[in-house]
Each structure stands twice: as C-alpha cells, then as structure tokens.
Design a protein around this nucleic acid. Structure first.
Lengths: 194, 194, 194, 194
DNA sequence: CATGAATGAGCATTCATTCAT
DNA sequence: TATGAATGAATGCTCATTCAT
C-alpha cells in the first residue's frame, strides 16, 4: 500500500519523495538509531551528499517520514468510510491489520516501534510520532461514539492499546498468527458492544 | 568475592551488580542503541575500561541486564501467589502496573521497549528479550486456566497485549492516567469472566 | 577523478595513491601490527576519518600496499629484460638489490618482512604477501631455464632464499656491507653455472 | 628439544621457567606485537597479575625468551661436536633444520621471525635478537675455518642466509618440502668445498 | 609471594554533516 | 541542483601495567 500510494500519479518519483519512501521502509526495518543517512540514500537511490539538499538534518528526514506515515494512516482510515456502520468500520480496521501480519512479525508496527524508539529521546523529537497514535485513537473514538458509547474514549484507547500490544507480541515472538487470533477476539468484542 | 561477601545484605553492591543495575536503568531510559558503555560505566560509577573485565562485550552486558529483569519479573509474579484466587492475582498484577505508571510515562515499559528495539536487530540477539514476555504470558495463562477457562492462552495473550499496548500509549502521550483508566477497565473485564 | 586528472604526470598524487604510498613506506618501517591508521594517514597527509572513504578496513589498505608492491616488483623485473642473456639479467637483479642495501639495513626487505609478519596471522590474510615472493621465484626460474638448467626451480628457490636471507641478516646486524659481499659471491656463482 | 631441555631436572617447572617457555612458544606462533601478556600467562598457566612479579615489563619477558633461545641454540650447536669433521657438523646442522620443517612451515624460524619483527622497533630492543643470529654465524664460520677456508666468514654468512631465506620461503608458501630440497642442495655444496 | 581487579591511554571504525565544484 | 569527497567527534573494545589485599 505504501508504495502504491507513493507512486500515485506516475511510476517516477522525484528525489524528495524517493527519500521519504526509502526512509519509511528503512526506518521501519532497522529503527531510527541504527539507520544511517547512507542507508536511506541507498534505498532511495540518491547520492548521499544530495540528501542534505532536501533535508537539513537526519531528524528532518525522519520527520518527513513520520508525516508521510500520517498521510497513509489518514488515507487508510478514510477508506473505511465506505462501510456504513461503525462496527463494520472497526472490523475493517481489524482486517487491514490482520492483512499486514507478516510484515508486523518481521519488523513490528511501523508506528508503534517509532513511538517506542523516539520516546527515548530527550529533544523535542520525542513527541513527534505521538501524532500517529492520536490519529488512530481519534478515529476509533469516533466510531465508538457513533455507536452511542459514553465511554468512547476509553474504548478507543483500549482498542488501540490491544492493537499496539498484539503487534509488539507478534514482533517479539515472530508469530503472525497471534494477530489472527486477537483480531478474532476483538471482532467478537465489537459484536458484544451495545 | 571479597566484595560480595562484604556487601552481603548491605546497600552497597559489588561492581558487577552495579554494572547490571546501571545497565538496566540506563538502557530503559535511553534505549540500547543510544546507550554507550561509557553511559553505563558512569551510571555504575565504574571506570570505562573496567567494564570489560566483567563483560566481554556490550551485548553480554545487555544480556545480563535482560536476565536480571527476568529475575525481577519472576519475583514479582511469584509475589502475587499470596492471593488465593486467580482473579485476585490478576488484579494484583494490574495494581503493580498501575503503581509504576509515572516511570512508564517517562520511559515506557522496561520490557516492551527492549523487545521493540532488539527485534530490529539481525543477529541472534533479536530474540533475547522474548523470554521476558513469555514469563508474563505463561503466568497469565496459568491464572486463566485456574479459572477454568479453555481459552486461557488467548486470554493471556490478550491481557498482556493490552498491558503492553497501554504502556506504549502512556509513554507516547506522556499520560500516566491512561494506565489508571485501562487498569480499571481490565479489572472489570476480569470480574466479568466466568 | 578531478584530482587524478589534474595530477596526471605530475609530482602530486591523489589521495588514494598517497595513502597507498604512505602505507607502503610506513608498513615497511614499522611493520603491520605496530602501524596505526593514524600513522598512515599522517604519512599521506590525509585526515584519519577520510581513510575509510577509500579503504573499508585497515586490511584493505594493507592489501592495496601489497598490490602496489607487486606492481613495483613486476616493473623492476621487467626492466631487466633489456639485458640479452639470463646471466646478465640475474646480475642486474643482484645490482638492484645491492643498490638498496642502506634501506634494507634500516628496515629489512619490504617484501620479506611483510611475509614474515603476516604469516603469523590466522585469517586469510596470512597468505596475501606470498604473491610477492612468487613473482621473484617465477622470474628467477625463467632465467635459469633460459640457461638450459633442468634444476631451474631449485636454483631459483635457492637464489631467492639467499636474497631474502641476506636481507634479514643485513637488517638484523644493521650492516649494509653484508649485501655487497653476498652479491659478489652470488655473482661468481652465476658465472660458474653451465 | 625445547621442552625436554627445559624440563631437565624434574617434571615440574617453576613459574618463571614456565613463563619463559610459554613466551617462547607463543611469541613464535603469534609474533611479539600480537602476543599479549595474558596470552603468555595463559600458556604458562600463571595468573596474569603474577607475571609482573617475575618480569617488570613485557620487554623483559621477551628478552628472557630470547636468552632462553640463545641457550637452546648453544646446546644444539654444541651437540654437533660429536661429529669429527666440520663437514659432518655442518651436515648435522642441515639435518636438524630439516627435522623442524613442519613447524617452520607453520610459524617460520623462531629466531628469524623474531629478528625480523624486533628490527622494526626503535628502542634498544631492536638489536636484542641479533645475538641469536650471531651464534649461528660464529659457529658456521668456525666450521669453515676448520676446513681451512680463508673466506670462512663469507661462507658462514652465505650459509646462514640460505638457511634463514629458505625458512622464510617455507613459511610464506607453507611448503615444508622446500627445506628438504634446499638442504639437499646445501649438502652437495658442502661436499663440493675444498 | 600471589592474585583478582583496576585503570587509562590507544586503536579501528562509523557517521552525521559540510564543502568544493 | 548535484555530488563525490572531506572531516572530526564519537564508540566499542584491547592491553600493558598497577594496586590492594
């Protein structure tokens, strides 16, 4: 999905886009600290020295990758609007997650691992990826509120927590099936809600 | 040996122990990649060159920190045995988590962030912290099984996922209260189980 | 590229060449183990960190120095072709050696000491400088064969052994004259051969 | 031979002797620069900290190893006195060398590699192992002089050079047979002398 | 004498960032 | 804009030597 979205509008990406895409992939796979500018440049097929024309610092490039991920999340969540009921939308979310279980087993959640890693920093950057989680929670809260739940916020936090937690376990144990079983459970839970 | 004897029972730990403790603290606060041997040495008040007398490599020291964490987890989980019912034990677990919410907001779950970060590695070390998660899941499964649940495994995974997920959100948003509310919800959930 | 073009034919060498030359000189003078990257960088007037732009590891730089020495050897041996008879060529070789007796007394044979030192290693590198010796032996064998000697190989080995041995003694005793006398003896020996 | 001499007088060696023996073996195998005090201590089964009771510095221990080698050389050369003629003594020398060809192929000449390596140093130590070579040359000169040769000195130097050179080639190419063939040639050469 | 532990200077290597062209 | 090259401050790790007991 990442690639297909990024390529929207033509097979050729300009260098800036290629760098952001490369950053997303490599940062997800290797983590922020272990990823070098050279890694990203290579993934984007851009000369190392050229990176700094588009991004003044490594952090700025990471920020751009986070922003691009935010866009992806918005697009994905918006795509669930085609379902009429909030329950159907929530289940579509679970389905989307389940579809990515193999990648999650290998590299974890692209957003969760980013939050986890950047939260260790002591500069302003530590809060940067929080925006990604906020998107999920806000969306989920909206769904639960559409269902008439007063405790929509808590349910949203609980659901996203379950999502992030199962991603972590899936990654830790390298077992994609964990997501399948948990998604099934969450599906039943959604059904059980008034 | 002399030191450990001398320090037995006292507040002063010998250097090896101090290094492991320092490693635990600093690794939790800064992450594995960003933490230098010098950081750990300083935290343990040990000269840098001396670290290598006790640990051949940085990885070995990290492993020792993981092992120490495993011990702590075992001790904590064992302490819940004083409660007679499995439900009481699970609730005691939630209470223990809630008690640590301030640290979690600042630095995340000491085990979860470790799993998340090390899973990015490509050496054997990537699986090392899985043992920590396993301890939690096995313990939780035991509790649910004591309650007669056939789906004890799934419930255990779900509960630990919720735990890890809420730790991640708490850390991401720097909001300790998230743990309080989620713990309350999980408490009710436990009560609702047959 | 710019530099190499600019330096073409001139006394100034580009950095890579300068590094290889510096490595040759310093490795010969100090040996491989005692020579630091900083030593070579300084000899080549190149910042330490820049060395790694040209050579991924110290070993790779050493290998480049060996290769450069192989080139020198080939050039030198080829230069003896101007002599018509094999005996004259062998004597030219002895003269070339004798000409370098002062350096040999100070630092030994640049090839022999390299072989001696690297043979102690346990990685693949231990065999690397063997190629240098092989060049000498093959060339000498060719000369003896041109003289119609059936035992060309043995004679070649014997002669190169004498060469290497006298270099070692010259270096050990810091007596350049040893080479002069031995060269004289080998000259007579060559004359004595059928 | 080394061991049997060292053990003369009983199966137990005191620590100092064990250290010197360990040093000899390890220095021969690994070279001076690559050998750590810990390596030698381990080979001698002596605690690292204890080494400095017997030897103030690493150099002093290396010097002791050189001295021990000098003793060995003297003993070996003296053992050839049982042969009546100088030619027989020289041939006995060649035989002794040939007997050690396998070790030479693996680690080079224990004396030659030491000379080669230490000659690179810039302190007083650079001349230390020259004494070993001197022993050989003096002995050989004596033999040639007994044969009535006026050029005894040159012949001695030539012979020891051949010896050292073939050791180097044997080590470089890892071919023990080189020594066999060269020894044969030197044998014939000795026979050919008036 | 013995010894585990301590210490700090040094080394190969990495990498974000800058610069000259 | 583009890019290969430059730079220097880290970082993990080693090791001769010293010290306390």
């Amino acid at each position: 999905m990442t690639d297909s979205d990024a390529n929207r509008g033509g097979p050729t990406l300009d260098k800036r886009q290629r760098l952001v895409e490369g950053a997303r992939v490599v940062l997800h796979q290797q983590g922020v600290e272990k990823t070098t500018i050279a890694d990203i440049a290579q993934a984007a097929d851009v000369p190392v020295g050229n990176v700094y024309y588009y991004f003044k610092t490594k952090d700025e490039l990471v920020q751009a990758a986070i922003d691009a991920q935010a866009q992806d999340i918005k697009t994905m969540l918006a795509s669930f609007d085609r379902h009429r009921s909030p329950k159907a939308r929530l289940k579509a979310f679970l389905r989307a997650i389940t579809d990515r279980r193999e990648v999650a087993a290998l590299h974890g959640c692209p957003h969760g691992t980013l939050c986890s890693e950047l939260a260790k920093r002591e500069d302003d950057f530590e809060r940067a990826p929080a925006i990604l989680m906020q998107l999920f929670i806000d969306w989920a809260e909206q769904q639960f509120r559409s269902m008439g739940r007063r405790d929509a916020r808590d349910l949203a936090v609980a659901m996203i927590a379950s999502y992030q937690g199962i991603m972590l376990l899936t990654n830790t144990f390298r077992q994609p099936e964990l997501i399948v079983r948990e998604a099934r459970r969450l599906n039943r839970w959604i059904d059980s809600l008034a």
